[in-house]
Simulated assay, not measured.
Amino acid sequence: MKVACIFGVAVVATLGLNGCTTIADMAGADSATLNASAAQGFTKMRQEAQQKGQLDTSSSTYKRINTVMLRMIPYANQMNQTGHPFSWQLAVLKSDTMNAYVAPGGKVVFYSGIVNRLNLTDAEIAAVMGHEMTHALEEHSKNKVGAEVLTNLALGIGKSYVGDVGGGLGGAALDLGSQVGVGLPYSRSLESRADYGGLMLMAKAGYNPQAAITLWTKMSKMDGAGGPVFLSTHPSNQERIDAMERNLPAAMAIYNSRR
């Protein structure tokens, strides 16, 4: 979702992505620690959602998301250069909120609203999944932690924001979401990286990458009218679509090579 390497602009701009992740390691937020923390948060979130009847484990929406995730996991694992294997798990939350994220270590969270309200096709679900998987695989949340250390920005600020957009879900869902930056925007460069990586990942998994453009077109139409949390504070809709169109030939070559 969103990261904070835009804070402390002068220092962070100099350090860049690798600098932020190095600072995170020095602060004790190394990959293994972040993955373990996300796993604990994910378990707590699932338990809380189940107790409240908000955990979807059987609907057609859940089955479609799960099928897409399982199909993409082998290709996501090929992209994993973190030095730590991901333990992929899925939670689908019953909520009209249009949001999705992948927490460190492969904990996938989809709010049913992003699929149902946007009437997503399987390929468009794959576009969302690929984008979020790329954030996790490139450890953009670790980048966020490093940026926050540099700017003395507490993670609680993110939690205070997501409380307004959590769709009535419990605190565990908001806590886990805040780990990957809900309420704290990723830099545009990291969003562009996730767009590119997601486009290539969905193509490798055999999903037509043209669906990424239809996805963002749908979300663009919802923007400003109770639109997706997933979309807020990201690069402008047209900038995003233009970049995807430039990268589409490379993605289509991968997709067509599988046919």
Rank of each mutant, 00 (worst) to 15 (best):
M1T: 11
V3R: 08
I6K: 11
G8F: 02
A10M: 13
A13G: 15
A13F: 00
A13N: 08
T14W: 11
T14E: 14
G16Y: 02
C20F: 09
T22L: 08
T22A: 13
A27D: 13
A27P: 09
A27N: 13
G28H: 05
A29H: 14
D30G: 12
L34Q: 10
A38S: 13
A38G: 07
F42N: 02
F42I: 01
F42K: 00
R46E: 11
Q47R: 13
Q47A: 15
K52I: 01
Q54A: 15
D56F: 10
S59N: 07
S60V: 10
I65V: 15
M69L: 15
L70S: 13
M72I: 14
M72T: 08
A76T: 01
N77G: 05
N77M: 06
N80W: 01
F86E: 08
S87P: 03
S87I: 09
S87R: 14
S87A: 15
Q89W: 02
L90T: 06
L90A: 04
L93P: 04
S95D: 11
D96V: 11
A103Q: 03
G106A: 04
G106D: 06
V108A: 03
V108F: 09
F110M: 04
Y111S: 01
I114A: 04
N116E: 15
R117W: 01
L118Q: 11
D122K: 10
A123V: 01
E124Q: 15
E124W: 12
A127E: 03
A127K: 04
H131F: 05
E138Q: 14
E138M: 10
H140G: 12
K142Q: 15
V145R: 08
V145I: 14
V149E: 14
T151Q: 09
L155E: 12
L155V: 12
I157H: 09
Y161H: 03
V162Y: 08
G167N: 07
A173W: 02
L174D: 06
L174Q: 08
L174S: 04
S178A: 10
S178Y: 00
V180G: 06
G181L: 01
L184R: 07
E191G: 14
A194L: 00
G198H: 01
A203G: 10
A203N: 08
K204C: 02
K204S: 11
A205C: 10
Y207K: 06
P209S: 04
Q210P: 02
A211Q: 03
A211W: 02
W216I: 03
T217E: 14
T217L: 00
T217K: 12
K218P: 11
M222D: 06
S232T: 14
H234Y: 04
R240L: 06
R240C: 11
A243W: 05
A243H: 07
M244P: 12
E245I: 11
E245V: 14
M252V: 08
S257R: 00
R259V: 12
